[in-house]
Measured scan of single mutants.
Amino acid sequence: MDETGKELVLALYDYQEKSPREVTMKKGDILTLLNSTNKDWWKVEVKITVNGKTYERQGAVPAAYVKKL
């Protein structure tokens, strides 16, 4: 869990989004888990830093590609 009490997951593999509802992640990324009720796809929040600014993006990733921490 992070400092706000939200559950975290670890990306076990790289994943490139294939639709606007998904998010890209790299192996080793730590993501915030938002919903894991679907056994195949979990909704997560990814933090992306671009030019020193951090953005948050929500989307789905394959459940088999992440592990709860």
Rank of each mutant, 00 (worst) to 15 (best):
K39E: 11
E17N: 06
N51V: 04
I48A: 06
V23W: 03
Y55E: 10
E22A: 05
K43Y: 15
W42V: 07
D14M: 04
Q16A: 12
K68M: 10
Y13E: 10
A63D: 05
K6V: 13
Q58V: 14
V44A: 01
L34E: 02
D29Q: 11
V44Y: 02
E22K: 03
K47E: 08
P20L: 08
K27N: 03
M25A: 00
K67A: 10
D2Q: 13
P20W: 08
T4C: 15
K39I: 09
K18D: 05
S36K: 08
G5H: 14
L69M: 09
R57D: 03
D40A: 09
R57P: 02
K43A: 11
L10V: 15
V9H: 01
Y65C: 15
A63Q: 03
T24E: 00
S19N: 12
A64L: 08
V9E: 00
K68E: 06
N51M: 09
N38V: 05
E56D: 11
D40E: 11
A60P: 01
V66E: 02
I48C: 13
K6C: 15
V61L: 02
I30W: 04
T49K: 09
P20M: 08
K47Y: 10
M1A: 13
P20R: 08
Q58Y: 07
Y65P: 03
T54H: 08
W41K: 00
E22N: 04
G28A: 02
K68L: 14
V23P: 01
V9A: 09
M1G: 13
W41S: 02
D29E: 08
K26L: 07
L12A: 03
I30V: 11
T4G: 14
L10M: 13
L10K: 07
N35L: 06
L34F: 03
V61C: 06
T4M: 13
Y15W: 09
V50F: 08
K67W: 07
T24N: 04
S36V: 07
K18L: 09
Q58P: 03
W42G: 00
E56R: 15
A63N: 03
M1N: 13
E7L: 10
L10G: 00
V61H: 01
K67R: 12
A60Q: 15
T37H: 10
E22C: 06
Y13Q: 12
E56T: 15
W42Y: 07
E7C: 15
V50S: 09
P62K: 05
V46W: 06
A60C: 15
D29R: 02
W42D: 00
A63K: 05
Q58K: 08
V44P: 00
N35W: 04
I30C: 08
A64E: 10
K67Y: 07
G5L: 11
A64K: 14
K18M: 10
A60S: 14
Q58L: 06
S36I: 07
N35P: 02
N38R: 07
K43F: 15
N38Q: 09
G5T: 13
M1K: 12
